[in-house]
């Protein structure tokens, strides 16, 4: 097993482990805990991105997700003063059926993956690297129009948020 493969298993394990803790934490049902584990999940994912030569995206992942988005979550949690999910009973039936449905999806996809690809072939040799310069070049040439539209989307989102946050919508 090469060092790269070792890193893959390490980061994959961490991602899924923290992901589970985001969804279901047996010790705390506080949203803050979930948010913190989300940060960890995203950081491990950034590690996987690095293994896939997507350096720029790994950085964006850390900056935007782990930085901005999670801060926004925490900010709202504090704003709303939600301490802990009230001690309501977990509905076993609904959680169980939900789990079954989700497991069915996972099983279908993964079994399909295993049957159709040739496992163990590994990845081809990398010729393209997702560096800032490379990504910037393709972004401002091939995807210039979607990029500009994206800026418009951000503007709309900003306007929407401001409008929603006003106390009385008149």
């Amino acid at each position: 097993m090469s060092a790269g493969d070792g890193f893959f298993y390490f980061f994959a394990f961490l991602t899924l482990f923290f992901g589970v803790l985001v969804v279901y934490n047996p010790f705390s049902r506080n949203p803050v805990t979930s948010a913190m584990f989300l940060v960890l999940t995203i950081l491990s994912l950034a590690g996987l991105f690095l293994l896939l030569n997507a350096f720029f995206l790994a950085a964006v992942q850390v900056l935007v997700y782990a930085g901005a988005v999670i801060v926004l979550f925490l900010f709202v949690i504090m704003l709303l003063d939600i301490k802990e999910e009230e001690r309501r009973k977990i509905r076993v039936i609904s959680a169980g059926t939900g789990f079954l449905a989700v497991a069915a999806i996972a099983f279908t996809i993964i079994s399909r993956l295993i049957w159709t690809t040739r496992p163990g072939a590994g990845l081809p040799a990398a010729t393209v690297v997702g560096s800032t310069a490379e990504l910037g070049t393709i972004l401002f040439q091939k995807f210039l129009l979607p990029f500009e539209i994206l800026s418009l989307l951000l503007l709309v989102a900003m306007v929407g948020v401001i409008l929603l946050s006003k106390k009385d919508l008149k």
Binding site: V102, A104, I105, T108, I109
Partner: peptide
Amino acid sequence: LQTYSFLFAAGAALLLF
């Protein structure tokens, strides 16, 4: 909301299958 999302997931599972 839970029921809706469950039905949605179940439907997606069925379609995928």
